[in-house]
Amino acid sequence: MSVSPASVLRPITMPRVGFAPLVAPYVLVAPLLGLIFIFAILPAALALFLTFFETDILAGTMRFVGTANFARAADRGNVLNSLRVTFLYTVLTVPPSMILGLSIALAINGLRRGRMFWQAVYFLPVAATLVAMSIVWRWMFVGRKGIIDQTFGQAIGLTDWLNSPVLSLPAVAIVGNWQQIGFVVILYLAALTAVPRHLLEAARVDGAGAWSRFWHVTWPSIGPTTVFVGIITSVDALRVFDTISTMTGGGPSRSSQTLAHLMWERGIYFFDIGGGSVVTLVLLALALAATAVQRLLTARLERAGTR
């Protein structure tokens, strides 16, 4: 920190107002919560409300249908399918991004020269326009003539990914990893520079091997970053839409249809506002659950930080 708190703390002439400190937090938070209320909570509440109606926007009519939208959603089984796909996508993107991101960060961190260069290379996809890159990737995954099939696809016997109900989701997940690994790398690189040098040196003097040094010194000290990365990548997995919409459209036969895509398909593409709202509800519930998990995981770290 270049700014020393002492330098800005000239003696305060203004008398302390007893009331102000009590009100201040609310004044500071109010604009943000107001905006979140308008642009997130209110629309989400509207979605809740709409689950009980059949709404025809075109005709401008609304009809109360009770729980019929829920019954239909359960009947078709699409919501369950999308829950499964979303979970699978999370498994296919969060751990690989974290493991690969950490490995690459460790590799770059161990370099004597060229660190900036490799950071830049791995960060490029983070800065790219995803909708355009999805088109390039779709093209790379195209059966037979695409680069994937022409190179390692044939070598490992997995071809025509986007047309396959088994491989379409992994194809999208590969792009998801490609896009976010650079971000994970930079987060971990930042964390690695903060690992106390003297501890590493001490471990080395004690004759600890590379793995032992990593496990006993590096890994514990990058713990908060690991939690942070886990949260960010999970949030992304819950929201993934652009790549799926461009590369697979959720198919073939819903094999890669995540909840976010299902919500769009029912609510917007099929004009079924009620049915789409049911999916929104499921997503909101998941978002709350994820929030709870994150609060539990970080509460301990934060208590440590609030000393």
Binding site: I41, L238, R239, A260, M263, I268, T280, L286, A287, T291
Partner: peptide, 9 residues
Amino acid sequence: AMMVPYHAT
């Protein structure tokens, strides 16, 4: 709010 996909709203 961070976790809600914005297509929902």
